[in-house]
Amino acid sequence: MSFDRSTFVLGVRDGAPMLVGAIPFGLITGVSAVSVGLDPVAVVYMSATVFAGAAQIAAISLVGTGAAMWVVLLTTVMINLRHVMYSASLAPWLGRYTVGERLAMAFVLIDQTYALSILRYPKEGTAFSRRDYILGIGATTWLVWVGATAVGALLGAQVPAAWQLDFAIPLLFLALLVPALRSRPTLLAALTGGSTALALAGLPFNLGLVLAALTGIAAGALAESWQTRSEA
């Protein structure tokens, strides 16, 4: 299918307001990576290839505390599990594209592109280029994300350690976590995960993080089934 420039531009325009969040997030990612001793070039490489803010920040903090590689990868998988849900949700809309095109769309499947696309597709006809819309949002966000990380990494290298910019990592996670606590099962998942992680913080390779996440997820899912049963 040929490239539909106006639909691509529509994606760019719809995605623009989301950049307000991506710029500070990218800056902080760059700054905190340098604060734990990572090379600025490596950080920019990570932003350009991984393109997943929360997973990147988690990896940065884990690398900073000397975690094993497999723990970092397992954490990446867990933090990105929501993308599997996005993938399942968007798949029925993208069946007409080639595998190469689908991979390109998957590469830019982040929170912002998912939210905008899943709201837009049902409103448009079959002639609408779903591919160029999502790629328009994705390309813009990617460019800004990589640029912001690079600026953050360069700035971070100039900042003295007394500023304690490594504290940006827990702050950023708080900013993502707190607004997500919208239901009691979610709150329980967070409280269980957080307290288990604290209790197991002494385990080697940051293994406590993996166990705590699994415990928290189980607590949330169990609470949901109890809640559903008592309402039924």
Binding site: A58, A91, L176, G220
Partner: peptide, 28 residues
């Protein structure tokens, strides 16, 4: 459409962000 997600997995996925983020942020 060649794969479908089991309902239990789908339910568990909803709690991943809260559990993982809290597990990272609390010890920090």
């Amino acid at each position: 459409d060649r794969v479908t997600m089991p309902p239990l997995l789908r339910r568990a996925l909803a709690y991943v962000p809260a559990a993982v983020l809290a597990a990272i942020v609390t010890p920090a």
